[in-house]
Amino acid sequence: MSKNREIWVVAEQRQGELKRITLELLGRALSLAEEKGSQVGVLLMGKSNDNLCRELAQKGADRIYSIEGDVLELYNPELYSRVVAGLAKEFEPGAILLGATVQGSAVSSSVAATLRTGLTAHCCDLSFSEEGRLRQVVPSLEGYYVFVSHSYPEMASVSPGVFPLLPLEEAGKGEVVNRELSSIEGCLEIKTSVLSFEKSVKDAVSLEDAEIIVAGGAGVGSAGWSMVEDLAEALGGVVGATRPAVDEGWIGHERLIGQSGKNVSPKLFVAVGVSGDPLHLSGVREPELFFAINKNEKAAIFQFADYGVVGDYRKVLPLLIEAAVNSR
């Protein structure tokens, strides 16, 4: 029944720039649509969308639903959700994909509940089953769970970094559908106002782009955490972390690698005091060289690494840091 319904991507922009996740989603949506013989719609909210509409069209979106307004410049969870839910009711897409970001999670959840439809979080893969249902794959401790929805639209949030970026397609001819905010159901009775946005100071190299990552886990402890940072610096890379390390506050949430954090594809990955849980390693995509240092010889991480060191990292890291500094 949904054969020809559109696959939607809800775009995320910040200050007039599309976030990378949106392009990752667009790429996947296009290949899914091709498989199904349907089309891709991108839903774009912002202050003025002309440039981004052009970019999205160029990159292959068949239809861009553009909603403009001063109040849409900054992320407003209530308003953004109303817009998406309202348009989804009007146009009845077959599937809606969002990024598993703070914004994407919030908006997808609210919309799914409003539409009373299913929603899968943190997907690491999407495909269609023989019956034409969207298979939404999520990493778990036990393996990859495959979810399907009972109803339409089929909704999923996708972890950043799992789908590759698409090369620019010059022949884009997507159509732009403009909609007035005031014409969308519920958008005039918004109770939330956004007051300000303060950009955080970003690191020079983000985790997703890093070629060298040293990841620290619970085994590092607060006292030794600086050693992990020193090693990353000595190697010219960046620091990543497991959930316990983030929960302990040794490092910020933006450094989390895994199912609820980032997906990374470095060339060199060094795991220190990390047990090798699938929910962490699902975020580490095919490094060329993978070292693990863990004091427990039975730790699962040793099944996944190329080389392992069994022992206390505090004995090895200082020497490794020295070796790395010396060979620069």
């Binding site: 009373r116 439809t117 299913g118 939404q136 778990s140 769970y145 495959v146 979810f147 399907v148």
Partner: peptide
């Protein structure tokens, strides 16, 4: 709204 159909 969703159900798990398989574990890979």
């Amino acid at each position: 709204g969703v159900c798990m159909v398989e574990v890979l």
